[in-house]
Design a protein around this nucleic acid. Structure first.
Lengths: 344, 344
DNA sequence: AATAGCACTCTATACGTAGGAGTGCTAATA
DNA sequence: TATTAGCACTCCTACGTATAGAGTGCTATT
């Protein structure tokens, strides 16, 4: 891939910016009118022809202007991130922080509210994954007698999330037996991540099937069940807002996207592979990963509570989205969320 | 409103059934072809003209067949319910019961799964409201020390639902103090509905502001906070399926519906006013209640656990939906859910 | 190397026409 | 008197044609 010369770069970015702004194939005259770098339409035309050959632009038909290819968007976004010449309205920024700060400090509520916020300010689909279940650190387990052969378990994590679940027992236990089981589990596992706990349980159960105490082996089995139940999840908000975008005129596309989102599995898989170390990331053309997401992009950023909890949050919208505005919005929302969560 | 004569009824229902089946304005020849009651097209035409005058049918334009008005659907559905000549595939019925029976007996999961089931078998939007929070009967409250000034509360209802919530305390309490508070609350309120508890708390707090024990008054305040938090909710599934219906060609309509559904408030209000005593109910033309739901209908039925819990469940779809199939589906799903919940 | 000029291409829009489905009215019929 | 056949009429839809406009690529010129 040869490096583009300065002028070619400029023309490419001008075209993409115009297309993002106007949603219409942009021709040589349009570029000249909107960005008066002293070039004649003819010159711009030949540059455009070059960019088309290189694969950055394409024509819907012979006598139309150019529109960006996915490769074009990729280039555009990368050069934006490089130059970092994006701007965010300071009033909006203030509102963003205020809104997140106003929420009660309950992680579950926080996650919902963040996805709403993202959707609200971006007019895209807001997406937030709570901290990964496997990485959560166990703080405390509590077991309460519930029905004859069942116990209510309460699982408190270091990050403040609480999960409850009904576990089935092999035989009736008294409340004091349940307390003993809970004590054992707390002594053994508090402070460890769910992943570590899972591993240890598997090890202990395999090692001494017969040797150990019935109470203990039952405790292990209960705990195993508990942890399995703690599955990953994800929250999406703002289908309405997103569907108002001019790009969603294609009803087939909208249905496809709805379907994928309702399915969640694919999205979760994709999100689980996001690289936490990288900061903000832009996936231009989700279609190459999830077929139904053709011509869609995702801007995503990690967040943490500065302890163990790490999650991802961002937006999904048309590849033609206004990156210049939206990348900073996602970025600042992630910072704001991290900050608020760290204050606990 | 004059009663229609037998033949006119027949023609009206034939036209509506045809329109539901084919989604095309139906003319006199069509009726003759599909339903050979010995009438000539000319006769059918004059009957149709009469029905149009009465407001049951309408013409998209002068030289087209007739389509039903909302009043027409109303008449059609009422006569269906009256004659009760609806049929349900017994294989489908079997699957329906099997599916609901296969779910673990956790009310929350049950509700999600029911709305999925409804959506799956109807290709409409499935809608289920969990039992009304106010009508829930308190079984047991448990308080656990959580952080300095906070306690984790676990609220178990008779119907098996568990809610947890973090309550803020005015000052630090020890675990044993919390236990005392919980005991007091259990002694006072277990077995009452949330609504009753709310009333009693309001009464007690107002009656003896100074007289009573600090612990008790705190207990009351905590409990109040808990109960307020228990708000009504609703679950919707199957936007994808519904959007595949041929009626949803209008993108504007689909967006309007999405918006309303995302909002939830209007829907909840509507559902809270459903008459439990009536069994299955059909709202033809939701548009008259919720403007964005033009030309949509709702088939809805109550369910119970044969104790205190009562909720509503049903489907939302185009006014042109196949009532003959879908009314029995909703009906049987409600019966199945009631049966499964009653088995606990 | 950049530009002006020009012929060419393709789309979107409007318009006109023909075909067809369905009606309402009227007169004939059982 | 209720029903029906016949017929003129209406209106939608599909399809073909014509036209304006936007934008291009190529070529000759600066």
């Amino acid at each position: 891939m040869k490096e583009l010369n300065e002028r070619t770069k400029k023309v490419l970015c001008a075209i993409i910016q115009s297309y993002i702004d106007l949603n219409v194939p942009v021709g040589s005259f349009m570029v000249k009118r909107r960005f008066s770098f002293g070039l004649s339409p003819a010159t711009i035309r030949s540059t455009m022809a070059g960019l088309e050959n290189l694969g950055y632009l394409t024509q819907p038909h012979t006598s139309a202007g150019r529109i960006p290819t996915m490769m074009g968007y990729r280039y555009y976004v990368d050069s934006l991130l490089m130059k970092n010449n994006m701007n965010i309205n300071s009033v909006l920024l203030h509102k963003l922080y205020k809104r997140l700060r106003g929420i009660q400090k309950n992680l579950n509520v926080m996650v919902i509210e963040t996805s709403r916020t993202l959707s609200f300010y971006s007019n895209c689909i807001g997406i937030v994954t709570p901290p990964k279940a496997e990485e959560k650190v166990l703080k405390h387990i509590k077991l309460i007698k519930y029905e004859k052969n069942r116990a209510l378990s309460i699982l408190i994590s270091e990050d403040g999330t609480v999960n409850n679940n009904v576990v089935n027992l092999d035989s009736p236990y008294t409340q004091s037996q349940l307390r003993k089981i809970a004590n054992y589990l707390n002594d053994s596992f508090a402070g460890l991540t769910m992943l570590e706990i899972k591993k240890r349980i598997a090890y202990q159960l395999s090692r001494e099937k017969q040797a150990c105490d019935r109470l203990i082996s039952n405790a292990l089995i209960i705990c195993k069940e508990l942890i399995i139940w703690e599955s990953d999840n994800m929250l999406l908000e703002g289908l309405t807002g997103a569907s108002n975008l001019p790009d969603f005129v294609d009803i087939k596309q909208i249905k496809e996207v709805l379907k994928t989102i309702e399915d969640k599995k694919l999205m979760l898989k994709l999100l689980s592979e996001v690289d936490y170390s990288k900061g903000i990331q832009v996936f231009v053309d989700l279609g190459s990963i999830i077929p139904s997401m053709k011509k869609m992009s995702m801007v995503i950023s990690p967040y943490t509570d500065n302890k163990n909890a790490r999650g991802t949050m961002g937006i999904i919208g048309p590849a033609r989205m206004n990156y210049k505005q939206l990348i900073p919005i996602v970025d600042h929302t992630a910072r704001a969320l991290t900050q608020v969560l760290s204050e606990t």
